[in-house]
């Protein structure tokens, strides 16, 4: 259970990082290390070079730029969880982070690390999908912006070249009067979700004017339930509607693995979506989430 030998670099700037990873083919970027280091210890990975990002100060921090948030990719999960700016402008992020691992892992784990590792059950990927986050990656040729919907390419594989680094995550918080909810089902506290769901609904004149629903754990990347969003739009929220939404969510194309079957994941998707919609409504009305 020891990592293989590797050469270690701890650059201070993004340009040094880019130069290192474009020079070395078999290099891995080390962010918080909460997924990478176990993989190294298990020797699932044995890179020749490790480029540690923990000293690249430009990658840390949360900034408010007009109507959006700009989050550095090395911002720790614990900082996001407790940030007054996040809690006030996009509390769904902070809610979801309550489900991410434990204090000890959130103190090291980063948002960029989570998005790049792209675990199928990663809560931060689900939230980024619900918010239509825009990810900035930096390489030799400069920056490019990737929409969260285009980010997952395959299992554990984001749309990131080996000589590129995710530097920034741009989130546009919802401005209108809206409700939000994040729930997941796992066997133990802090475990990977079997299914997770993030819900954002905007309500104008007693009618749902905008909805965003994202599922995690059902597929390689987060899945947006566009058909459920269409169903909700223009309707007035209520028990019947949410039940119908749950039934539609149940039709999601879910994966199966050694532990949980496709059917089990489908049933969870339906039940959790319905529950999360009620939770979001309760939040909208100013009640505490009764369905957590």
């Amino acid at each position: 259970m020891k990592s293989c030998n590797f050469s270690y670099y701890d650059p201070n700037t993004v340009s040094e990082v880019v130069s290192l990873i474009s020079r070395h083919e078999n290099a891995k970027l080390l962010a918080g290390g909460q997924s990478l280091v176990p993989m190294l210890n298990f020797r699932i990975l044995s890179p020749e070079h490790i480029v540690d990002l923990n000293k690249v100060s430009d990658l840390f921090g949360i900034k408010e730029n007009g109507n959006h948030l700009s989050i550095g990719s090395m911002t720790r999960q614990s900082e996001l969880l407790n940030s007054p700016l996040i809690i006030q402008s996009s509390p769904l992020i902070s809610k979801a982070l309550g489900y991410v691992g434990h204090d000890q892992t959130r103190n090291r784990g980063t948002i960029g690390g989570s998005l790049c590792h792209l675990d199928p059950a990663a809560e931060l990927c689900v939230v980024a999908s619900a918010y239509n986050a825009e990810l900035t990656v930096t390489g030799k040729k400069g920056d490019r912006v990737i929409a969260m919907s285009d980010w997952p390419v395959d299992f554990l594989t984001p749309a990131l070249d080996h000589d590129e680094i995710l530097t920034n995550i741009r989130i546009t918080p919802w401005q209108g009067s809206h409700g939000f909810c994040f729930i997941e089902f796992a066997r133990r506290e802090g475990d990977f979700a079997i299914v997770a769901v993030a819900v954002l609904i905007e309500i104008t004149d007693h009618v749902i004017s905008k909805a965003s629903i994202a599922l995690g754990g059902v597929s390689a990347g987060p899945v947006r339930l566009h058909d459920v969003e269409t169903l909700l739009k223009g309707q007035s929220p209520g028990q019947e509607l949410f039940k119908e939404a749950g039934l539609l969510a149940k039709k999601v194309d879910a994966m199966s693995d050694v532990n949980y079957s496709t059917n089990y994941r489908k049933r969870l998707s339906g039940a959790l979506t319905e529950r999360a919609l009620h939770g979001a409504m309760a939040r909208f009305k100013g009640e505490e989430e009764g369905h957590e």
Partner: peptide, 13 residues
């Protein structure tokens, strides 16, 4: 000041 897992951090860090 932060509780962390020491098996997931390299000593060099």
């Amino acid at each position: 000041g932060d509780a962390v897992r020491s098996c997931l951090m390299f000593a060099i860090q």
